[in-house]
Amino acid sequence: MAARPVVEARGIHKHFGAHHVLKGVDLVLAERELAFVIGPSGSGKSTLLRCLNRLEEPSSGSVMVDGVDMLDARTDLNHARQRVGMVFQSFNLYPHMTALGNVTLALRKVAGKSSAEADALGQSALARVGLADRAGHTPGQLSGGQQQRVAIARAIALEPRVMLFDEPTSALDPELVGSVLAVMRDLRQSGMAMVVVSHEMGFARNAADRVLFMDQGLIVEEGTPAQIFESPAQERTRAFIGQIQKH
């Protein structure tokens, strides 16, 4: 018998007014699995991720994370969100706090840790992303790559069951991308379940279990990286892959 999936989203629809952005998307993620999502801009990738932690309210469908019904009114959403880490394209660090302050805020306010406990957990999260020596720096004093790693530390400090990455390296200068991907690779090796929206095909090839191609609010095709990148079944997938490989 297969273990319970970490994420089980079924039949997700999302409307923004008259705009039908997700048209019945299923996403099931097993323990330790990394699903890599590609697709043209506007195809609904971000919206799908944001439905998983209910930053966006799905119009219909169901979302279970670690067996918890995220859409049930009786679910303590703030508590459940600790189980779903999210990393944004624009980092979204709190500019008025140090790196450590960014990481410990939710530990103190949501997880109910004492300041001393939170500081210890925060320090070890920063160490995991290679920034133990930057704990006292504010975001303004850090490079983009370092800021994004602090953002990753902020999420993993809460010990989530799954991490969602929404184009984590798209805002970075090319020379800073590697340090963030390295941290993501480490996370993957530690067994974290991950959903990654990104254009980093190299990372997908050697870290993804599955690649999902989205277009116009639907998952058009999914398979192993080799299947999707080398021999896609769908014409739309082939066209998209061809397009990004030209760059």
Binding site: R81, F88, Y94, H96, L105, A106, V110
Partner: peptide
């Protein structure tokens, strides 16, 4: 994005307002 980052870590509306948004 400040609201979204804070809410995604489980902070409530009020906690986000007090700890993240108001100080800035």
């Amino acid at each position: 994005g400040q609201w979204e980052a804070a809410r995604s870590t489980g902070l409530s509306f009020g906690q986000t307002l007090i700890n993240v948004v108001l100080p800035q």
